[in-house]
Amino acid sequence: MTAVDLTHGLDEQADAPIFEARDLVVDYHSRGQVNRALNHVSLSIAEGEAVGLIGESGSGKTTLARTLLGLIRPVHGQVTFRGQDLYAMKSIPRYRMLGRDASLVFQDPRSSLNPRLTVGAVVRDPLTVQRIGTRAERTDRVAALLESVGLPAQLVSRPVRALSGGQLQRVALARALAVEPGIIVADEPTSALDVSVQAQILNLIQQVRASRRLALLVVSHDIRVIRYLTDRTAVMYNGEIVELGSTARIHDDPQHEYTRTLLASVPSLKR
C-alpha cells in the first residue's frame, strides 16, 4: 500500500462514528479470475457528518458504498454501524437495522424506481416495510415528505413514469428521508441531471441537512458536487483510498497525484 497519512483525516471528525469501515478487502470473481475492488480500505463517518467519495471510474466507489450498506460481504475487514458489527449479524436483522436508519439514493432514478408505481406508493413503501405508523399516519407523512422536497401534492397519485428526471430524483430523496435515517448514502445523485435541476437537488439536500441531523456519504465524479455538499473527502484510486482529509484542504492543497490530475481536469466556464 502507498504510505498516506490517513490519521490526519480521522482527527478532523468530532462525533462518534455512525459508520466505521476497517481494512476492507472486496474481491469480485469472474471466470476464475479475481478482481480486487477494495484493497484494505478504512473510512469512518461521524454522526451528522457529510463525507464525499471521489475517484476514477472503476476505482471502487460504488463497491465501498454497497459494502458499508451491508450488501457486499468483504473477504477481510469489518464494517460497524452504530457500534454493531454488520457482517457478524444475520442478514435479516442486518437489513432491518440498516433499512430503518441508512437510506440509499441511486444515480438514475428512472431505472431505480418502479415506473408503474405511483409517487405515493414509492415514498410510502419504506414506512410499510419498516412498519412505521398507522395507515393514516403514513398517508400524512407521505404528504409532508413530498412537500419537504418541493413536489406538488397532486403528484401523489401520478405514476412514476410520468415524471421528469428532476422530479423523480426528488421522489427518490423523499423516499430516502421517509424513515428519518441517520445517514443517506447517495451514489452519483445528480450526474444524470441537468445543471439547473442538479442545483435544485443540491439545494434541497443542504436544506434537509440544515433542518435535522443527517450524515451523508456522497459518491460523485464531480468535485464541485463534493465540494458543495461535504466536510471531508476521500479520494479513491485503484481500490484504495489514496487521500483523505477536509474537503477544503483537498481542494486547495491536493497531495496525491491523482487528486491533482482530477482537479486540473475539471471543466470550467472560466478559461
Partner: peptide, 26 residues
C-alpha cells in the same frame, strides 16, 4: 442566462445555488 447561472454558481460552490424554477414540460 439561467443555464449559465446554475453552472457558474456550482463553480463558485457556496450559498444557495442558482436554479431555473420549475421544469421542462412534456
Amino acid at each position: 442566462a439561467g443555464l449559465l447561472a446554475a453552472s457558474s454558481s456550482l463553480d463558485e460552490g457556496h450559498g444557495t445555488l442558482a436554479t431555473i424554477p420549475g421544469f421542462v414540460h412534456p
